[in-house]
Every structure is written in structure tokens, then in C-alpha cells.
Amino acid sequence: MVRYEGKTVITLNVNGQPHEVMVRPADLLLDVLREQLGLTGAKPGCKNGDCGACTVIIDGWPAKSCLVLAVEAEGHVILTVEGLEGKAPIQKSFVKDNAFQCGYCTSGFLMVCHALQMQHPDMPEEHVIEEWLQSNICRCTSYQEIRRAVHGMYNNKGL
């Protein structure tokens, strides 16, 4: 049985690379990604699981990293927005459709949309897209542009 108390070194698989980090069991994945690995793409917003700005992808599914302990992410495959390397179809689609204003929510939306495409390689029904997008909040209200970008991701493959 694994038991962690106090500071412990664990290995996290982030963006295809193993990373050793020193964590306490109470540390959130969001904080470890940002403060120890310098991966600041996941944003702290509400830190209550409501806004989605901190969304990353764990084992192919979106996860709000403010609601994940770093220790429980051990052994899982974590993808952050930095891991998309600017090449994901949704990133190109966001630029094409101006799907952001202030940009604070953008990385979270990108990760949800990228996970959507991972799970649904072909365009799903509209209610599925809506359901996935409802996990995130954009206070600049770029919702129409974001939805258009998702359609663009499927129709144009982001090109």
C-alpha cells in the first residue's frame, strides 16, 4: 500500500515526460504544475471546480486540476496546454475564430475542446458539444466564438 506523509518525491507524467516533484499529500495538481514545473497554462480561477480555467487532460478526459491532488495523479498521463505545443487543431481554430478576449479562460477551454476531439474524433451531436463546453466559464462571454471554433476544429481540422 502506498502511504505518503509530509513532503515526498513522486513522479508525474506530464506532457509525455516524467517529472520528479516534491509534494505534500494536500498539494493540488494545479499548484504543483504551476509552481514546480512552471507550467502556468492551467490557471487558478475559482479554485472550487466551477470555472474550468485550470482544466487539464488526465488519461484522455478533462479534469479540473484544482480538484485533483498531485499524489493521486501519480501513474496517470497528464496533458496541459503546453503539451499541445500550438499544433492542436483547436488552437488554430481558436485563432481563426477569435474565440477569446482577455484569454484567461482560454487554456481551460482549449483542453476541454481537445479532450472532446480525443473522445469524439468525429463531430458529435450539438448537445454533446454544448454539454462539454458548459464545464467552463468565459467572463468575456466569447461563447459563440468558442462554439464556432469547435465546429471549425471538426470541419477544417483547425486549418
Binding site: M1, V2, R3, Y4, E5, R24, A26, L28, D31, E72
Partner: peptide
């Protein structure tokens, strides 16, 4: 982080 020290257990069996 959550503002309290916790000990984390990850058992592999129900008995553990």
C-alpha cells in the same frame, strides 16, 4: 493546496 496536513493512503485491496 488544501489548508491541512493529511496522510495519503492508496491501498490495492479492500482489506488494506
Amino acid at each position: 493546496m488544501i489548508p491541512c496536513d493529511v496522510v495519503y493512503y492508496r491501498p490495492g485491496t479492500l482489506m488494506e
